[in-house]
């Protein structure tokens, strides 16, 4: 049982390949965050709109995204839509699944943040002649993003880790996909996944630190 001999040298040879995969991982995570943020802001506006249909739609999205497994969300984007004749590539399905998840969680974070911003802020903007959308965009949203900054950063880390679920829909170019392929060819399971884990860790940490640096530059009040 303990006859397994580590072969780090062989595994490390694959490092450049894995780093290429890491780049794809980062790319999906960043893209999913950017799109997720935009959709989350739209969902937040829907929920504030007072329109039953719009706010119902947004609430349903948030509820489903937060209360079903992320894996199912990605499956649905790939196989679920596939049953309706919409065939997305593994890359796109993974992206769609994570965007769905991100948008739901972020919208919920935004709702919490909005509670901390008094209505009088909007009122002050409106009384200067701003439209309600202008007051939201120029006054409420910047404050909301600041208050929700920490949970947004957490979601970014979560998005990075969620990309590993892509293998289940045939994704083979991201870090987990590449690692899985290497493993299938060599059976150096422990080495490859240990290296991949370290890379995930480094990316996640780097993103957190970058976010913190960004925050301290941006939020000077």
């Amino acid at each position: 049982m303990f006859s397994y001999t580590f072969q780090w040298k062989q595994a490390l040879k694959a490092l450049p390949q894995m780093l290429d995969g890491a780049l794809v991982t980062l790319q999906i995570a960043l893209l999913s965050m950017a799109i997720g943020l935009v959709i989350a802001i739209i969902l937040t506006l829907f929920r504030m709109s007072g329109n039953r249909i719009l706010s119902g739609f947004a609430t349903a999205w948030v509820e489903i995204a937060r209360n079903t497994p992320a894996l199912f969300q990605i499956y649905m984007a790939h196989f679920g839509l596939g049953s309706f004749g919409i065939h997305l590539s593994p890359f796109t399905s993974l992206l769609v699944g994570i965007v769905f998840n991100n948008a739901g969680y972020l919208a919920e974070n935004f709702r919490g943040a909005l509670k901390a911003i008094p209505d009088t802020q909007t009122r002050a903007g409106r009384s200067l002649g701003m439209s309600s959308l202008q007051a939201f965009r120029l006054i409420v949203m910047p404050q909301m993003l600041r208050i929700a900054f920490l949970p947004v950063t957490n979601q970014m880390v979560w998005a990075i880790l969620m990309t590993s679920l892509g293998v289940t829909v045939g994704m083979n170019t991201d870090l987990t996909g590449v690692t899985q392929d290497l493993n299938a060819r060599s059976f150096r399971t422990f080495e490859f996944f240990a290296i991949a884990a370290v890379i995930y860790y480094v990316i996640a940490k780097a993103v957190t630190l970058a976010a913190r640096a960004f925050a301290s530059r941006m939020f000077r009040y």
């Binding site: 008094p118 009122r123 200067l128 006054i139 404050q143």
Partner: peptide
């Protein structure tokens, strides 16, 4: 734009 108003609570935009 023609009718300005200032409230008891000044509502500075903190950001």
């Amino acid at each position: 734009q023609k009718v300005g108003i200032v409230f008891q609570q000044w509502n500075a935009f903190p950001h």
